[in-house]
Design a protein around this nucleic acid. Structure first.
Length: 209
DNA sequence: TGCCAGGCCGGGT
DNA sequence: ACCCGGCATGGC
C-alpha cells in the first residue's frame, strides 16, 4: 500500500484540537461535510477548547450544521470539552498523559466517544500507539476473509496491531498513522461498497487463491 | 433521484 | 447480551 500511495500519515487537521473536533464530527459522516463545519468553527474563531466550551450548545450546533447530526454532535463535543476543560485545564497534552490503555478508558468514558473515535484521538492527536478500526478497515479485512463481517471492534483492532512490523511498531508513531491512512486510501479507491476495483487494488497480491 | 458517509447511544427484548 | 431506531447534511 505504501509503495502504491506513498507516505500519508494522514489525518486532516492543523492542530491536535482540530483533529479531536474532526474525529467527533466525522462520525458516520463524509469528510467533505466535516470540512464545512470546521471552516465555520474557524471563521467564528471558536476552534480552541475554552472558547468552544463557552459557546451555548445551540450556537455550536448551528456552526457545525453541515456535518449532519448537529444536535447530537454539539452535545458530544461539549461532553468532550467538559472533561478537557474541567479536569485537564483545557490542555490536550494533559488529557493524553498516562499509558495508552488508561487514556483509552478515560476517553471511552466520555459520552459520544466510542472505540473508533477514542483510537483516532489517541493516534492522531495524542501521540499514542493505538490502531484505528473504521468502516474501511472492516470492509477490507472481511472481504479478504481476514476476519468475519461481524467481528467485534477489538478483535479487528488486535488483528491489525498483530500484523505491524515489530521494529517500526515500537519506534515510529508515523508508521501506525500511515498504516491506517493507507487502509482508508484502499477503501476509498478500490475496496468500495459497490463497484470494487479489486483488479487494480494494491492489496490484490494478498488475496486468497 | 435516492443512497450513503471514517459511529454511538439509549431503550426494548 | 443482543438488536434496533434515531440522529441530518451534502455529494455523487
Amino acid at each position: 500500500m505504501h509503495e502504491h500511495f506513498g507516505h500519508h500519515q494522514w489525518w486532516p487537521g492543523e492542530t491536535p484540537f482540530e483533529v479531536c473536533a474532526g474525529a467527533i464530527l466525522t462520525q458516520n459522516t463524509s469528510w467533505t461535510n466535516v470540512e464545512h463545519a470546521i471552516a465555520n468553527l474557524k471563521s467564528a474563531g471558536v476552534l480552541d477548547p475554552r472558547t468552544m466550551f463557552a459557546l451555548p450548545e445551540a450556537e455550536l450546533a448551528q456552526l457545525i450544521r453541515p456535518a449532519g447530526y448537529f444536535n447530537v454532535k454539539a452535545r458530544r463535543l461539549r461532553a468532550f470539552l467538559r472533561v478537557l476543560v474541567e479536569e485537564f485545564h483545557g490542555e490536550l497534552e494533559q488529557l493524553f498523559v498516562g499509558d495508552t490503555a488508561t487514556v483509552r478508558e478515560r476517553l471511552l468514558g466520555i459520552n459520544g466517544i466510542g472505540p473508533e473515535t477514542a483510537d483516532s484521538l489517541l493516534l492522531y492527536a495524542g501521540g499514542h500507539h493505538s490502531f484505528v478500526v473504521d468502516a474501511y478497515t472492516k470492509r477490507i479485512f472481511s472481504r479478504h476473509h481476514w476476519c468475519s463481517a461481524e467481528a467485534d471492534y477489538d478483535v479487528v483492532k488486535a488483528l491489525c496491531e498483530s500484523s505491524l512490523d515489530e521494529k517500526a511498531k515500537t519506534e515510529r508513531l508515523d508508521y501506525w498513522q500511515d498504516y491506517h491512512a493507507q487502509l482508508v486510501m484502499v477503501g476509498k479507491h478500490y475496496c468500495r461498497p459497490r463497484e470494487p476495483r479489486c483488479e487494480e487494488c494494491p492489496l490484490r497480491p494478498l488475496l486468497p487463491h
